[in-house]
Nucleic acid binder design. Structure first.
Length: 581
RNA sequence: GCCCCCGUAGCUCAGCGGAAAGAGCGAAGGACUUCUAAUCCUUUGGUCGCAGGUUCGAGUCCUGCCGGGGGCACCA
């Protein structure tokens, strides 16, 4: 979808022409304006004549000829000609392109429009478990979710971050008893657990080995669920301690989740009974094998029987179907969100389809309250299997991020004359950026292979490449000793300048499609193409030593604009753009 | 058994119903007294898993196969 950029403007002109010349009414999008593939001598092409030919009873070429005859676009089109079966190729005027680029230089949003109808989004992402260390399995949801949140906010939407913590359930009985054994009281706060995983394992081991402990743990679960205040106080301490750990990881990763975004399983606890009651009141529930179930239409199990969503288990407890339904009910009804977004792995697809179907039956989801599962594939090791340590253990996120920065530091040390402190900052930006970009640059539906070598490669579609291109630009601007003035005219003389400007003007379309499809990789692809276009320009067009003063100022402005686009794009992905490298 | 996702160059991946399918890596060659060579430029490389169908036009949409992965009742 091309929106808010050159393609849309051309589409408007073409639609207007077709209306006046042939009486055909189409939208600018339906004009099917696309960037022309390179080497054909055209910038954009219109593909509409072929499909319109039948409806107007003319040949495609006749439609194209009528389109050209009625076209009022001399201010932006240098040359338009019919080619092949009925393509219309446009070459845009250099002065018009330059003027558009000049205009963008003064535009904070670099041409990207705000949403026409801003929504209120609740985005579920992150979702670590309390009393466990974050591991590589939390990486994709955190990174993709955060990019989506940033993109939506930039689009002018209201966004509520929802970190769906695993903070409730039977394991908390043993965890809290273990806390008590460790001497925690709530009077003296400021506890810390050095290693959450060891803590969990120790509790588990005692539970399995010690019958008395197990019995205490079971009683503790009852106290917790019964709302016993001393128990709840200990539980809150445990959540707080875990949250501190999550925040450290989020800080290292550059993810914007904060403790105020915690909406864990426990949050929905008070709503579960009412949710089930409401489903029952609407006649949607049945009791099956002792469990209260909703059978949304269209789902069958392996024996062809209807597939249940168990909203209350046989033992009276509630499972995740109940929690998620209560969540939909809460966010649509109590918080009046327009859009629920779940950034959760692909294996959960069936679950969410069923939850959404049931929520629709219950009336919580409708045309004004939508829900979407933004699913993603797995991270694989270079052996093609699920990414783990060589020993087969899950990889701690903290360790992975430390390794990323260490590896980046080695690369940085080889090539820079920055001082040690600056080197550290660059290593962080490069290392973390590499991990995030590698995740975001691929179509999220697919599995991707985690490769240090590839993600830290200096060439190709990597974060470092983009960061380096930007750092070079900023270096030139520093040397210039001046910032290009707002409105500094951008004048196109060389082919490479033209190619760069055409790319820069396509930012709005790239952002729009990334948002529309919850597909950050579309923005990545665009940024990479932009950085490539800049590298070509940088190679061929001297900036500081341009032939004329006008050209020098124009090229400085172009460099400035490129840096703005790259920096903005990276920030929408949650990736830093260092000033120097 | 049913459902979902994926299959594009040797490898890792883009590709919006439109023209001779695009990058990077790899391989071969070239460009630094130069604004950051962490770069750039050549060359090399494709039965778009297979078979039908829809269409003026299919890598893209539909159906059926094949291959890989995932899911399918009381864990979340």
């Amino acid at each position: 979808m091309l929106q808010g950029d050159v393609g849309l403007e051309l589409g408007r002109r073409v639609a207007e022409s077709l209306r006046s010349a042939l009486g055909v009414r189409i939208t600018p999008e339906q004009a099917l304006i696309r960037p022309s593939s390179a080497g054909r001598g055209a910038d954009y092409q219109c593909n509409a004549a072929m499909s319109l030919a039948r409806t107007v009873g003319k040949t495609p070429r006749e439609v194209a000829e009528a389109l050209l005859a009625g076209l009022d676009a001399a201010d932006l089109v240098e040359q338009a000609e019919i080619a092949g079966p009925g393509f219309v190729n446009f070459r845009l005027r250099d002065d018009w392109l330059g003027a558009q680029a000049t205009r963008l230089l003064a535009d904070e949003r670099v041409g990207v429009p705000l949403a026409e109808r801003p929504g209120r989004y609740a985005v579920d992402y992150g979702s670590p478990n309390v009393a466990k260390e974050m591991h590589v399995g939390h990486l994709r949801s955190s990174i993709i979710g955060d990019a989506i949140v940033r993109l939506l906010e930039f689009g002018g939407h209201e966004v509520i971050r929802r970190n769906h913590l695993g903070d409730w359930g039977t394991p908390f009985g043993m965890l809290i008893e273990h806390l008590v054994d460790e001497g925690w009281t709530t009077v003296e706060a400021d506890h810390s657990i050095g290693d959450l995983n060891s803590f969990y394992r120790a509790a588990r081991a005692k539970y399995d080995a010690d019958g008395d402990f197990a019995e205490r743990a079971r009683r503790r679960v009852v106290s917790l669920q019964g709302g016993d205040e001393p128990t709840l106080a200990l539980w809150r301490e445990l959540v707080a301690e875990s949250t501190r750990h999550f925040e450290q990881v989020y800080a290292a990763l550059g993810v914007t989740l904060a403790r105020g975004d915690n909406y864990g399983e426990s949050f929905y606890n008070p709503f579960l009974a009412d949710t089930v009651t409401e489903l029952a009141d609407r006649g949607l529930t049945e009791t099956s094998d002792g469990a209260v179930c909703v059978f949304p239409p269209g789902f069958a199990n392996r024996d062809g029987e209807r597939l249940p969503l168990i909203v209350r288990k046989g033992d009276g407890g509630y499972g995740y179907a109940a929690t998620d339904l209560a969540g939909v009910r809460y966010w649509t009804r109590e918080r009046d969100v327009t859009d629920l977004v779940y950034v959760v792995g692909a294996p959960q697809k069936l679950h969410f389809e069923m939850v959404f179907a049931a929520a629709e039956q219950a009336g919580w989801l409708d045309g004004d309250h939508r829900a979407v599962h933004v699913e993603f594939g797995s991270i694989l090791g270079e052996d093609g299997k699920i990414f783990r340590t060589r020993a087969g253990d899950t990889i701690k996120l903290a360790d992975l991020l430390r390794e990323a920065v260490d590896r980046a530091a080695e690369v940085v040390a080889e090539r820079t004359d920055l001082d040690e402190r600056q080197r550290g900052q660059v290593a962080e930006a490069v290392g973390i950026g590499a991990v995030k970009y590698a995740d975001l640059a691929n179509d999220r539906d697919k599995d991707y292979v985690f490769s240090w070598t590839k993600m830290l490669a200096l060439e190709g579609n990597t974060a470092v490449y983009l960061q380096y291109a930007n750092a070079r630009i900023l270096s030139v601007l520093r040397r210039a000793g001046e910032q290009p003035a707002e409105g500094a005219p951008i004048v196109l003389t060389a082919q490479a300048e033209r190619a760069l400007v055409l790319k820069l003007l396509q930012l709005p379309g790239a952002v729009a499609s990334a948002v529309a499809d919850f597909a950050p990789h579309k923005l990545c692809t665009y940024l990479y193409e932009t950085a490539t276009a800049f590298s070509g320009f940088y190679q061929q067009c001297p900036i500081l030593k341009a032939d004329t003063e006008d050209s020098r100022r124009s090229r400085l402005a172009l460099a400035r604009l490129t840096s703005t686009v790259l920096t903005l794009g990276l920030s929408l992905l949650g990736i830093q753009a260092p000033q120097r490298m």
